[in-house]
Amino acid sequence: MKSMKNLKTIALTLFVAATTLTASAQNKKINVEKSKITWIGKKVTGQHDGTLNFSSGTLVFDGKKLKGGSFEVDMTSITVADLQAGKGKEKLEGHLKADDFFGVDKFATSTLEFKTIAAKGGDVYTVTADLTIKGKTLPVTFDLAIGTGTARTSFKVDRTKYDIKYGSGSFFDNLGDKAINDEFELTVSLVY
Rank of each mutant, 00 (worst) to 15 (best):
I117S: 12
K43G: 14
K106S: 14
F54C: 02
E113P: 09
G69M: 03
K97E: 02
L144G: 10
T137W: 06
K36V: 01
I37K: 00
I133A: 03
T116P: 12
T141W: 05
G57H: 01
K97Y: 05
W39N: 04
T132N: 09
K67H: 10
V44D: 07
T76S: 14
L96V: 06
L66S: 14
E72I: 00
V140P: 08
I30D: 11
V127M: 08
F54I: 00
G63K: 09
K120T: 11
M75I: 01
F61K: 09
T132D: 07
I37R: 01
K89I: 01
T38R: 01
A118V: 13
H48D: 05
D99M: 02
I117K: 07
E33I: 00
H95E: 07
L59N: 13
A23I: 11
Q26Y: 08
K43R: 14
S110A: 15
G94N: 12
K97C: 03
A18M: 12
A81W: 02
G88K: 06
T58W: 05
F101T: 06
I30C: 09
N27V: 10
F102P: 03
L52D: 02
V60A: 15
G94H: 06
A25C: 12
V73N: 02
E33L: 05
T45C: 13
D74E: 06
T141L: 07
E33T: 12
L112R: 01
E90D: 13
K65C: 10
T141I: 01
